[in-house]
Design a binder for these strands. Structure first.
Lengths: 332, 332
DNA sequence: AACGTTGGCGTCAACGTTGACGTCAACGAT
DNA sequence: ATCGTTGACGTCAACGTTGACGCCAACGTT
């Protein structure tokens, strides 16, 4: 035959109904051992494989999950995608991937595309101002795991790192190293309510009292180049800067490079702390001190949360808050 | 209604048949302007969206493409995935992604999963010894773009960089810098017939004659750690090594780190050339001299080749060979 | 007036699988 | 012998959409 075998072909070969073949394929029971052997032999001979498209039309389950992020070239992401895909594969699922460039319109387009293809659920790093669309899809019945944000809606679970604590750890580390004139670089696309790192950092400074000056703040894109620009902005606000906390490692690396370019030694003249702990951070000189976000842990928790949503939807879910830790290297 | 609207719902609201609604949705013609307006209004009101699963069951087209690679944490890959996804999105397609860990059994599993979900085509970085399975899927009718290898089969097109030329450029660069005792690090998973870089490198040395010694070779995993191990292997074969060409940038960075750890200065004592041109290569010290593989170009060519296969399958395709260039920085 | 053409519809039967329910022979209990 | 139960099947009708083909009124040509 010049087309792929179907249940009907297998059934025809064995002399049973397609329904019976479906029972064997799906291990449903309700067939004799003899029938089972014959069906499996025919499956092998005809190279039958279930058509997941036809199956999805009936069961509304496609065996796929979607991963929606900002930009895949952010090194944090591929490691996470590998983790998520590994766990999804264990559950017999195939992964869609789409990046949104942190644009809510593109995220809406991606979610629409996934919804139209009956994905079993999605793991989303939300774009700015996209809670409404996430809530909408949750209400429509799409299981959604939101990462690094809080959305309360049916079928939505949240998994996030304790980023305020990360900010506090960074602040305390810089203070204990004797830094007194500090700055924080936050993400350009983050609204104030999502600047957890900055909030924790500033809170820790306030708690500590002491002789440090009030910290200055800047914004930057999540790239090395962004970090260079963020450094320049901080410096213009506080020329005798001696400590920096950046919201991700690429930005921190950029700040380090800009510091070096301006004749300041890291960490002698200025200490830098990042947040992520990407591999690159161990290879640059000096090696970056950073707040480690455990991607393996995040992958596991996100996929587990999605599995729970898929199996038992429309149940109330408490956010899962993952701990962070400071990894002290050379830059601070 | 507590379920998503279908063509039937829209048809019922307007008072036409579902087929007519389908004609409007798909811009097929064969309807009056008045009918079109009514249908579009009803679509808006009912928030109708085509069910891509149902559509795929009939048309055998799902509007999805699959990307199959080794490991997403290889920095070359995410940049490529962004490019491919961007181009796919322009064509209204959604991207599956799966990594295989360069394992042919996992690649077979991935292809089976994609095939069962009626992907329109796949772009594959082949795992070792996987030509047979690729040929098999090509014969079954799956459009396949193979990257960095050559597979001749129906429905298969190949896109690859001129890696032998990359090897030659690296060799000539090192020679012109006065290096005379050189080594090449190839991929552990590459069979001899796929060591294009090494072959080009050695060929250029043979052509050049001169007073350089025959190069030594080593194998390494595609990571910084792999590069450190590869460097050690080369060094054991040639203790007065003064030039290295690595098959990717991470390996080159690892070699640089190992050289520094052994007290050798890069490039003074030992010059290092990589291949890829990942972003990290510009940020490490010294910045890496490398053979640049243009990912934007590769994404475009791969997606274009896949589009051609999808639109006109079972046609003979000449491999697309992309040029490479040497980017001279500080390490060589 | 008759005939051929054609636009704007509609009908029908898939596509491959599965949920809901039906049939029937074999078996144990009475 | 009769009856109720049950395992091992089978039948039927979706699921939502589309390809193939049919119908019919309107129109132009003869």
């Amino acid at each position: 035959m010049d087309r792929e075998a179907t249940l009907h072909d297998v059934a025809g070969k064995v002399g049973v109904s397609p329904r019976t073949v479906s029972r064997v394929v799906n291990d449903e029971g309700g067939y004799s051992p003899e029938t089972r052997k014959k069906v499996l032999a025919a499956i092998e001979e005809l190279r039958y494989r279930p058509n997941m498209v036809a199956r999805a039309l009936i069961t509304k389950r496609s065996g796929t999950v979607g991963l929606v992020g900002g930009d895949m070239t952010d090194p944090f992401f591929p490691a996470l995608a590998e983790g998520i895909q590994h766990r999804a594969r264990e559950a017999g699922q195939t992964m869609f991937f789409a990046s949104t460039g942190s644009d809510p319109d593109r995220q809406a387009e991606v979610l629409r595309s996934f919804w139209a293809r009956a994905v079993d659920g999605v793991i989303v790093f939300p774009a700015l101002d996209s809670i409404d669309q996430l809530t909408d899809y949750g209400r429509r019945g799409l299981p959604i795991v939101v990462v690094d944000d809080l959305v309360e809606a049916p079928n939505v679970a949240c998994v996030l790192f304790d980023l305020p604590e990360g900010g506090r750890l960074a602040a305390r580390h810089l203070l204990s190293a004797g830094r007194r004139r500090m700055g924080v670089i936050s993400a350009t696309v983050s609204p104030p309510r999502r600047r957890h790192r900055e909030r924790g950092f500033l809170a820790a400074l306030t708690e500590a009292r002491g002789d440090h000056l009030p910290a200055v703040t800047a914004e930057a894109d999540p790239t090395v180049r962004g970090g260079e620009a963020g450094f320049a902005e901080l410096l213009s606000l506080m020329p005798d800067l001696d400590g920096i906390f950046a919201y991700n490692d690429l930005v921190a690396i950029g700040a380090m490079r800009a510091a070096a370019a301006s004749g300041r030694r890291v960490p002698d003249d200025i200490a830098v702390v990042g947040c992520d702990d990407i591999e690159m951070s161990t290879y640059i000189t000096p090696a970056l001190t950073t707040i480690r976000l455990d991607r393996g842990r995040l992958s596991n928790e996100a996929v587990a949360a999605l599995g729970d949503l898929i199996d038992a939807p429309a149940q109330r879910r408490q956010p899962v808050v993952l701990p962070v830790e400071l990894v002290a290297r050379e830059s601070a």
